[in-house]
Design a protein around this nucleic acid. Structure first.
Lengths: 121, 121
DNA sequence: TTACTGTACTATGTCAATTAGTACACTTAA
DNA sequence: TTAAGTGTACTAATTGACATAGTACAGTAA
C-alpha cells in the first residue's frame, strides 16, 4: 500500500501511521468518504498489532480526518471539511517560528526573502 | 534563579531545563564564558535529582551551548560561536513549514503577507 | 586539607508505547 | 439465518525512556 513504517523514526508507530494518512487525505489521494483499510487488514499488511492501528485511527478521527460507521468501516473526511482547522494549526506553527526568529535575530526582510526563494508550491 | 519547572509540561524535565538555558544564552542573559550553576546546586534549587541536571547539561553541551572544565565548573559558549548552527536549524524548520504550506495550498503571497504582518522582532 | 567541581556508575520506580489475546455488537452478503 | 468482516473495549505483559536515589572517583581552588 501507501504506508510504510520507519523503525528508526523516533516517533511512535501510531503517530507515523496517522501522519501518513493525514497527508494522503489532505493531498486528495484518499478522496472524501473513501474507505480506509480496516484495523485488522492494515495490521496484517504492516505486520504490527491491530491495537496500534486502532490507536492511530483514534488519533486521526479525533482531529477530524475520518469517521467510523459501526460494522461497516472507517471513511475519510472530505478535504474541504478538514482544511480550515489545518490552516489554523499551520499559522500557529508560523507564529512559533516567528518568535524563534526574533531570538535568533533573523530580520524580517531576510526571512521574507528566504520564503520567497524557497517556496516549493 | 531564572529557571522554573512546569510539571504540566509534557516535555521531560531535562529538556525544559536545557531549552531554558539555551534561550538565556542566546538572549545574552548568560554571557560568554560565564559560569552556569553547578549540577548539585541547581538540583537543590529546583528540588530535583542531580542526574537530571547532568542530563540537561549533557544535552546542552552536545549542541555547543556550553563547555565544562574538570573540577572548575561549566561555562556558557559565546553567542557568536553558537549562532551559525542555530540559524541553520532555524531555516531547516522553515523548510519543513514550506513543505506543509504546499500540501495545505497556502499560497506564497499569502504566507509572505502573513509573515510581514506578524513578525514580532 | 577541605570543599567544591564534573563524571560515571548501579539500582529502583513510573509511565508511555507496543504487543498479545479475548470479547461483544454491528453490517453485509451468501 | 449464518458466516465473515467491521469497529470497539477490555486485560495482561514487555520494553524503553524518564526520573529518583545513592555511591564513588578525579580534578581544581582557597
Amino acid at each position: 500500500m501507501l504506508i510504510e513504517i520507519d523503525f528508526r523514526d523516533k516517533r511512535p508507530i501510531y503517530e507515523q501511521i496517522s501522519a501518513k494518512l493525514e497527508e494522503l487525505i489532505l493531498c486528495g489521494v484518499i478522496g472524501a468518504d473513501e474507505s480506509l483499510p480496516s484495523v485488522r487488514s492494515l495490521a496484517v499488511e504492516l505486520s504490527i498489532n491491530p491495537n496500534t492501528i486502532q490507536k492511530a485511527y483514534d488519533n486521526l478521527e479525533q482531529r477530524g480526518f475520518c469517521y467510523s460507521v459501526a460494522g461497516r468501516g472507517r471513511f475519510a473526511t472530505g478535504v474541504a471539511e478538514v482544511m480550515p482547522e489545518r490552516r489554523r494549526e499551520f499559522f500557529a506553527e508560523v507564529d512559533d517560528l516567528l518568535k524563534k526568529a526574533a531570538t535568533l535575530k533573523v530580520e524580517k526582510d531576510e526571512l521574507i526573502r528566504y520564503v520567497g526563494e524557497n517556496y516549493a508550491g
